[in-house]
Amino acid sequence: MPRVNALPLAIKKVYLSRKFKRRNRSMIGDAFLTLFLGLFGLFSVWPLVFIINNAFKPLNEIFIFPPKLFVQNPTLTNFQDLFIIIGNSWIPMSRYLFNTVFLTAAGTASSVIIGSMAAFPLAKYVFPGSKTMSKMIVYSLMFNGTVTALPNYVIMSKLGLIDTYWAVILPTAASTLGLFLMQNFMVQVPDALIEAAKMDGANEFTVFWKVMMPLSRSAWITLIILSFQNLWGTTGGGFIYSEKLKPVSYALSQIVNAGVARTGVASAVTLIMLIVPIVVFVISQSNVISTMATSGIKE
């Protein structure tokens, strides 16, 4: 059977220069796959369509039973009501919004940088303790968070972190998921590039910042998406009590919880809270592109 990796470099290079058409793609196969993708896509995207439509429904359409997917008489009433409520808020909505933006930005940045920093040595070197650390990281993903919540709270309060931004940011920065993801992408960066950088006198941090990070761009963009999505919806996780430190999703959930009369407002809130992660998602995803090909070195 063909072993591509075993192909001599010289031969490979000859064919690199030519443009090869991807052959052997049958039309029927493609049509079938497109149909399959389309059907499953409809199935998946349904709740999103539902949320978008719901936000523009007048109250009588929201309460219609059985619920209709598409809005009949679109209206902006839900949004107008929401802004009136927000305008009357005791603590200005801009404050909640600032909290969320700050928590999301600080949490995402620190988790990506701190996680990637640790991922690099664990992915590319063997040194005393490296195997143990890698194992601990994988295994820690398997211990359920429910029972660690109590010890976690005790630690937080001992450290005086309760009711500060740190209570949200620090645990996010310690995200093992992020490290594990980065580690699995950094493994693929060719050793030759690291050695070349070291020959030029780069220290480990420079290698990390100038070689590893640019080459694992797809990975940390993916991590940004995950971290952003997580933090954007945070309500403070039981660690933040001061009203002026609370994030926007907490404030909005308070508005929504005020009763049935707020159902229309609630659907507007759901859409507004979802738009930002969606925009971030689409922009980030379209930046998930090949980084290896531009590295210039073929092994």
């Binding site: 996680g115 920093m117 640790a118 040595p121 601990m136 010890p151 630690i155 920065a173 310690a174």
Partner: peptide, 21 residues
């Protein structure tokens, strides 16, 4: 160099994951 890169994560991991587990 390697240990210094890991250090920030290691401390946070110890405090917020390893000790609670």
């Amino acid at each position: 160099g390697k240990y210094l890169l890991i250090l920030p994560f290691a401390i946070l991991f110890l405090v917020f994951t390893a000790i609670p587990v």
